[in-house]
Design a binder for these strands. Structure first.
Lengths: 336, 336
DNA sequence: AAAGTTTTCGGAAACGTTTTCGGAAACGTT
DNA sequence: AACGTTTCCGAAAACGTTTCCGAAAACTTT
């Protein structure tokens, strides 16, 4: 059960420990024949370099921490897969933690990851109001961090985001072109820039096509299905009935869908629906939900690449923001 | 940017390195006052013990590897959350990898985790046919491993499973009690015991209620939505029309649902549907899908606990199989 | 007060690598 | 043959802890 160390193979071959090390790191100062010989014998002996010892001396853990609000819906898992794709390839390992949309546990996770000496972090902020101080401090110390999706533009870090403004515009425009006029927007929490940008896109489209609307048309709903359902039920109860809803994400749209169906109204005829961010659910729901899809895997990959860039620059590469493009998937829920 | 080490705080306080170490590990051989003094000064200096050095000398990484077929659907993420719940608490960190239902990458992941010296592994087998040799070897070497959900009873390891037999029986029984007679079973790959047990449960119910059926009623379908859809379409095209389907999981059931709707038939009136394993989708599809739910979080927690038990026994605790209970959630898709 | 016990601490080895430094050997040049 | 270069290798320090061992200090007992 005892592990075979570099010393064992050195002794076996009557060479020094350093030569064995050189054989494995294959860079310099070693003759080809001795190298292959060492590699062969080491393999026969079943020697595997101890990564911990290497990490200790190289002062790198080759670990990356990822903090996301949750990972039970497909969005974040897909991003994480993208992240792993590039990071595993470079020899890193990925530690994933979830904040449960709670700022306190988010910070707790980040400190835990810091204590465990990860070489960098990838973060998507929780929906709770947050204080930027700790992030800013870390960045000033040169800690490599990259944000994605849930971003705060007051934090001077690299990030990869989605063009929420543009696609919220397209989503709203689509509803307008379907002939809808009383279009409500179920928005996310407004302290997240993502929510604000989607609101802006909505307003832009309404303005451009000169559709009358008031601030009451924009309802801060949240991100969960039951929130969408509750808001919709309230509207229906008040006999305040829109002919279309652009929701900030798919769960809230589906919540609204439930309420509408329960009230006996028809989608899209009575009320058209558009979601955002494409979940697995959009196409299985009845009627299938029109939604904006994001390139989740690519978001993950580019986030990881930005992080590697930071790491290689010792945390002092100038921040860079990458905006990725999406797609409007038109389905039954909005075809009038 | 230079890290503060234990030596720095020792020098600062004019004590030896060993005493500082003792202050932090708080076990023996140290006077209360010196301990608190050291802790206080260390805190002021911003000292954090280097986990890598500790891991090196303690010969433990405090890392646990988890290998699952995928983590974009909610089932595995929820189990992982359960796993983390108990493991993080004990100071472990969790590395998650996915096999993509592929045996080769599963093995590759396992070897990578082994090389990175994780203290134990939690595995859910891929749906591909696999060879047990490597797992058996690891277990014989005393490597702590626990399996869950996708288990092979020929591997002598601890595992936590679901009573597939029993709940497949209940699912089928439910359909029978709704008056269905021509009940088909869309099964998973039969080399997984989970699939075989669900088939057994189906047969048991059919036998018990003396419902006639042939082996053709059991169709090896797979685990994905398009597979369920394809199989259903084929049945409909052949005019071979069942009055109920018990599917091995929700995606295949939903695939079937799509095909049925497309053919203009009614659910549950023409064909009743029951799924298995409860995904987020079951309650958002139309009609809502009757399904068996598994206690995902608890599965994760008990898996982690079994693993800790193995670790504490140096991998030689006698294997233990825990069977967890589920629930039948009856929804519209099966109410006749 | 001496002897024995217990408590508290320091020194040093150990964990398994990588890497710097210097020197020997091999080779090339005149 | 003498010298300069290059190639190859070993010794040892270093990474930052924990822990064993022994000794000094404090306390107890006689």
């Amino acid at each position: 059960m005892k592990h075979i160390t570099i010393k064992d193979v050195a002794r076996q071959l009557n060479v020094s420990v350093s030569t064995v090390s050189r054989a494995f790191n294959d860079k310099y100062d070693i003759r080809k024949e001795t190298r292959t010989k060492i590699l062969q014998v080491a393999d026969e002996m079943g020697y595997r370099p101890n990564p911990i010892a290497r990490k200790l001396i190289q002062q790198k853990t080759l670990n990356i921490g990822v903090v996301v609000p949750e990972f039970v819906n497909s969005y974040f898992p897909e991003v994480i897969i993208g992240i792993q794709e590039v990071l595993l390839d470079k020899g890193y390992q990925v530690l994933v933690m979830q904040s449960n949309e709670c700022y306190t546990t988010e910070l707790k996770n980040i400190k835990a990851l810091e204590d465990s000496m990860v070489d960098g972090m990838i973060i998507s902020l929780s929906s709770e109001v947050h204080n930027n101080d700790y992030y800013v401090q870390m960045i000033e110390k040169g800690y490599p961090i990259v944000f994605f999706n849930r971003v705060d533009e007051n934090i001077p870090a690299s990030s990869v985001i989605f063009d929420d403004y543009k696609w919220a515009y397209f989503a709203t425009e689509h509803l307008i072109k379907q002939g809808c006029r009383k279009i409500y927007h179920f928005s996310g929490y407004q302290h997240l820039s993502l929510s604000r940008n989607r609101i802006k896109g909505y307003r832009k489209a309404m303005d451009k096509f000169a559709i009358p609307y008031t601030d009451d048309y924009i309802i801060e709903t949240g991100f969960f299905m039951d929130e969408g359902q509750a808001v919709m039920e309230k509207l229906l109860a008040e006999k305040n009935i829109p002919d279309a809803i652009f929701a900030t994400n798919d769960p809230t749209a589906i919540g609204a869908m439930k309420a509408i169906k329960k009230a006996g109204m028809k989608i899209p005829d009575d009320i058209a629906l558009v979601g955002f961010s494409e979940s697995k659910m959009a196409e299985v729901v009845d009627p299938p939900l029109t939604s904006i899809s994001q390139p989740t895997f690519e978001i993950g990959r580019t986030t990881a690449e930005l992080l590697l860039r930071q790491i290689e620059a010792d945390g002092f590469a100038t921040p860079k923001t990458v905006v990725l493009n999406g797609k409007l998937n038109i389905r039954e829920s909005s075809k009038k």
